[in-house]
Simulated assay, not measured.
Amino acid sequence: MHITRTRPESQAGPAANFTGVVWLDEIAAPPPPSRLRMFNVRFAPGAHTAWHRHPHGQVLHVLEGEGLVQRKGGEAETIRAGDTIWIEPDEWHWHGAAPRTFMTHLAVVEAADDGTTTHWDAHVGADEYPVA
């Protein structure tokens, strides 16, 4: 057993992967053979990820606020505090806050053998992010 009493400082979500103000806090990244990675992600109103996918899928658990999640080819869906979302391996998607509310979620992924957790793509277009 190992108890971590300190963690890395909060990191701003890089503009290459996020639209708007996003803060990332690494919760867990245990040493190998574990491939688990867990982050607490805080989105300001309207902030969201670019399109991306994860080699082993992703679990999101909404802690507070209201947000949106969309898979490629599907409709954007509202997510709220208490919701848990399973995103299939290699499923293109994006997620973030609703237009007028903050949203915080836990994000859990498993790294691939090469250490990759995420494959990033284009930013979500203005016609894809619902503002109403």
Rank of each mutant, 00 (worst) to 15 (best):
M1L: 05
M1E: 11
H2S: 14
I3P: 03
I3H: 15
I3A: 13
T4P: 00
T6V: 14
P8M: 08
P8R: 09
S10I: 06
P14C: 07
A16Y: 05
F18Q: 09
T19Y: 05
V22S: 03
D25Q: 13
A28Y: 11
P32F: 07
L36E: 13
F39Y: 14
N40S: 15
R42P: 03
F43N: 08
A44Q: 07
A44D: 13
P45S: 06
G46S: 05
T49E: 05
A50K: 02
A50V: 03
W51T: 10
H54K: 08
V59I: 09
L63S: 10
E64N: 10
G65H: 07
G65S: 01
E66P: 01
G67H: 00
G67E: 09
G67D: 11
V69N: 01
Q70K: 12
R71Y: 05
G74P: 00
G74C: 05
E77D: 00
T78S: 04
I79C: 00
R80L: 02
G82I: 04
G82K: 04
I85R: 01
I85D: 02
I85W: 02
W86C: 09
E88K: 12
D90N: 14
D90V: 06
D90E: 15
A97T: 13
R100H: 11
T101Q: 13
F102V: 11
M103D: 07
T104A: 02
T104F: 00
T104G: 02
T104E: 08
T104C: 04
H105M: 07
V108M: 15
A111Q: 10
D113E: 15
D113Q: 12
D114W: 01
D121Y: 09
A122M: 12
G125V: 06
D127K: 14
D127V: 10
E128K: 06
E128V: 13
Y129N: 03
A132M: 11
